[in-house]
Amino acid sequence: MDFSFLTRADIMKTLLDGLLVTLEVALFSILFSFICGIVLGTLRYTKIPVLSHLAALYIETVRNLPLLLIIFFGFFAFKEWGWELPITISVIISMTIFTSALVGEIVRGGLNSVDKGQIEAARASGLTYVQTLWHIVLPQALRRMIPPMVSQFVSLLKDTSLAVAISLPELMHNAQIVYSRYYNMTVPLLIFVSLVYFVINYSLSQASRQLEKKLAG
């Protein structure tokens, strides 16, 4: 058990570089899957023929596939089709494809939880369907979506480590680079890296719980 890397600036720098890539990929993926997820979830909720069915098909297909497969696909298959994408972008796309399906379900669940009577009342008072959706339903639904959404994003952040399989230089991969050189650090590094993920994700979850309480109170 060699924990000496904790005092070595060079190794900590390598790990920090990895962490920054992890955070960068996670941040953009969260942003894009939030947007795509809201669109998908709303489409599915509205029951507009064809569009809502397409959204449902997309969601059901993607969320039943392993994320690792989508990451491989986004990297190797896109390349085979001649799409030139830097590895970071390809991972962001894969994470977005996957997470937006799950966010879509969360959004639909949130929308469904809004009392139907309110919608009828809003429509009766002269609001259009879109106005009702935008001003009445979404704001209420969003509040209920926060906890599952945050836990989804926590998953996303730790799942970026799957991109280790295509050598994205994120935290996990950089730890591997170090321990392939210093074998005695393998287990200590795995523990350390896990702790880093834990600290970030746990703080995120706690912050979301605080937010939830605030909104409820």
């Binding site: 730790k158 480590s161 996990m172 795995l190 890296v193 994700n201």
Partner: peptide
């Protein structure tokens, strides 16, 4: 629960594999 849920599965698998 909190520790396992907030750390990546890949790290856990590698951990069991090497530890």
């Amino acid at each position: 629960v909190e520790f396992i849920r907030n750390t990546p599965l890949v790290a856990q698998i590698f951990f069991v594999f090497f530890a």
